[in-house]
Amino acid sequence: MADTVPFMDVPLTTAIELDAVTKCFGEVRAVDSLNLAIGRGETVALLGPNGAGKSTTIGMMLGLLAPDRGTVKVFNRSPAQVVAAGMVGAMLQDGGLPGGVKVSELIAFARSVYPRSMPTRGVLAIAGLEELAGQRVDKLSGGQRQRVRFALALAGNPDLLVLDEPTVGMDVESRRAFWAGMRAYAADGHTLLFATHYLEEADAQADRVVVITRGHVVASGSGAEIKRSARGQVVSFDLDGTSLFGLEGLPGVVEVEVHGQRVRLRTNDADATVAALIRERGMVRNLQLGGPSLEDAFVALTENDEAKESA
């Protein structure tokens, strides 16, 4: 688990610190003894399947939810204090926008409640809203509204930006523009934490990926480190009309994936798998051996955790 996974050096100044945090909703343990430290200036992705506890964790970081046990500190203070001081900006999954106002009016309002807000032009540029400033919020498309919510999170020029599934509902174009804006913001030394279930997004945008499943951290490190931590390998070959029968029973195989005529076997013991494969089938076409993708690592990590839990 966490101790077998390489941890990046935790920087001297921490932006967010969660210490053995637990949060239950009735019988459901949404967050379970979660430990997490994020340094100032880091860009961190919180990666996990739906229901892993990402939104609950974020809710506690922002003071929207109180933990049942454990402590949450942001810039060494309570979440409520840093929110009141205007040091945090956030984009929530279920944060709505009021009707009847123009984009520019909403941003002007947001700027006015923060002590050190960003110039309006800067907000519009980073959020890609220059052309929509005069539009009524209720007339915008889903992706455009998402950018407005991003602008609201940015307007106060916060030291820490927390984004919960920020690119859900965005088209490819918006997504690209969004991450370009995000990188510009992070480059200024701001701390950025975003939750996502898109692996490529976590891999491409974050300095560090924290994998969460069933309410706790199962891995933390760069995309490459996480891939390595999954250990296993992938054996792939062309099916060429032969049957899939028996592949799952081969030694070492953890998972069988089929893409058209191509089969990918995720295995813990590539040598044994390949030997058995040749023995049983005589010949296989286009045999390839490779390292796991981030997705393989992710699946392995979450499965291991589930196995440990039920053992």
């Binding site: 922002l62 003071g63 929207l64 929110v83 009141a84 001081a85 205007g86 945090v88 900006g89 956030a90 929530l92 279920d94 944060g95 709505g96 926008l97 009021p98 947001a110 409640v113 923060y114 002590p115 919510r149 609201l152 106060g156």
Partner: peptide, 17 residues
């Protein structure tokens, strides 16, 4: 209405009490 659309949640993460 503001509560049901999530606008009040959004306001809660601003410095406005």
């Amino acid at each position: 209405t503001d509560r049901s659309i999530g606008w009040l949640r959004q306001l809660r993460i601003t410095p406005l009490p």
